[in-house]
């Protein structure tokens, strides 16, 4: 018997709605953009776990400003944009674009070289 007969007779045994990789990536990118550019505005402004513990235990005053603390996107705000919502949103947008571009380029290079060598 050919291997295909094992899967052909019962095509409904896997009722998963197959979604193309492209569709999945597009939907995922849209969700990520919404999270970074819109939902992020509603993020808790409380200190994160490490900052909180550093305050409690007593070494928070050792924290120094990063050398890029004066950058136009420092602390997820956009310099010169008054509207808080827009300021955070733009920063999120830029972050998503840069992170996405760098990673897509990196994995594309790694995948290509791997394929060439084989």
């Amino acid at each position: 018997m050919s291997p295909s007969t094992a899967t052909d007779p019962h095509p409904t045994t896997s009722p998963r709605g197959r979604v193309s990789t492209r569709a999945l990536v597009v939907v995922g990118l849209v969700v990520s953009l919404l999270v970074a550019a819109v939902v992020s505005f509603y993020a808790s402004a409380q200190p994160d776990g490490l900052e909180y513990v550093a305050e409690q235990v007593g070494f928070i005053d050792r924290a120094e400003d990063s050398a890029v603390a004066g950058s136009p996107l420092a602390d997820y705000g956009t310099a010169g944009v008054e509207d808080e919502r827009l300021s955070v949103g733009l920063a999120g947008l830029v972050g998503v674009a840069v992170t996405g571009a760098v990673t897509f380029a990196l994995v594309w290079l790694l995948r290509r070289r791997g394929a060439d060598r084989d």
Binding site: T21, V25, A36, V39, S44, G95, T99, V102, T103, V107
Partner: peptide, 20 residues
């Protein structure tokens, strides 16, 4: 490979949202 790119973007976005 495309999923790896998407994962990076999602992690960046997720890290922007502090939950109390």
């Amino acid at each position: 490979a495309p999923l790896a790119g998407l994962t990076a973007v999602f992690v960046f976005a997720g890290q922007m949202v502090n939950f109390p």
